[in-house]
């Protein structure tokens, strides 16, 4: 994979070096290296490429077998997930992303257990980003549609005041209308809140529309990150190893 990684710059939020991780003793990721600056960084890959494993590892929910992860310059390779979250990492998994027994309001407020700003202030910002949630705060999260659940999960991560937002296939299974809306919202979050976004996607066309840089993950190995503007079908095929 990318041997010609550039040195971290001052706005580098995440540095991943030769990362190996997996389940038990079986590695899924085989030496991934990349940086995320204050940008939207998209990881493309087909099913089974290791996208979910990568994001769960970055959120420190899966142990690192080898290599390192630095968040805001701090080595989090051996840190527990809660300490990593305190450094400003918000994580939205693809599945089971909300707490079904809690109301929408509780799901959001539970994100505000860390940080200094008032919960009310953060809630207002989340409602500005996801206006549909404002009138449904009393509903059980377990009764929501897929799109609403995704909004709640994303809102909860934003309540943590993150510096880096990890979004695992945020539009998977959503209707085309929601997909369009969600990509616009991700772009809005990045621009208005100054949050670096690392998202995984299968929908290359949509993801490239908002991404600054792209990396393709294939069978646990990552391509060299490409500027989204430079991506061509040929380069994608090469990265996908097709």
């Amino acid at each position: 994979m990318a041997d010609t990684i550039t040195e971290p710059t001052t706005d580098t939020v995440l540095e991943v070096r030769n990362l190996r991780s997996g389940y038990g003793t079986v590695p899924v990721l085989n030496g991934i290296t990349f940086d995320v600056r204050n940008e939207i960084f998209t990881i493309l890959g087909s099913n089974g490429a290791g996208k979910t494993t990568l994001l769960a590892t970055l959120a420190r929910l899966i142990p690192v077998m080898d290599g390192s992860i630095h968040v805001q310059g701090q080595d989090v390779s051996n840190m527990p997930a809660y300490s990593t979250a305190r450094l400003g990492v918000g994580y939205v998994p693809q599945e089971s992303a909300v707490f079904p027994d809690l109301t929408i309001m509780e799901n959001l407020s539970i994100g505000a257990m860390i940080g200094k700003r008032s919960t009310e202030e953060r809630l207002e910002e989340v409602f500005d980003t996801f206006p549909d949630l404002r009138t449904k705060t009393h509903l059980r999260a377990g009764n929501l549609s897929g799109g609403e659940s995704r909004m709640v999960a994303c809102g909860r991560a934003l309540m943590q005041d993150p510096q880096l937002l990890l979004l695992d296939e945020p539009t998977a299974g959503l209707s085309p209308l929601y997909v369009e809306q969600f990509f616009e919202t991700i772009e809005l979050i990045h621009k208005t809140r100054n949050v670096a976004v690392l998202l995984t996607e299968q929908n290359a066309t949509k993801a490239l529309g908002i991404a600054d840089r792209v990396m393709v993950l294939s069978l646990g190995e990552g391509s060299e990150p490409l500027d989204a503007g430079d991506v061509t079908t040929e380069r994608l095929k090469e990265a996908y190893k097709l």
Binding site: A81, Y91, S96, I110
Partner: peptide, 23 residues
């Protein structure tokens, strides 16, 4: 808030770990 954390731990501990509190 402690109770909400406990409910979160009970329903989805891995996700609760990413909230910034030790489950």
């Amino acid at each position: 808030p402690y109770g909400r954390l406990l409910i979160a731990v009970g329903t989805n501990e891995p996700l609760a770990r990413s909230l910034g509190k030790s489950t």
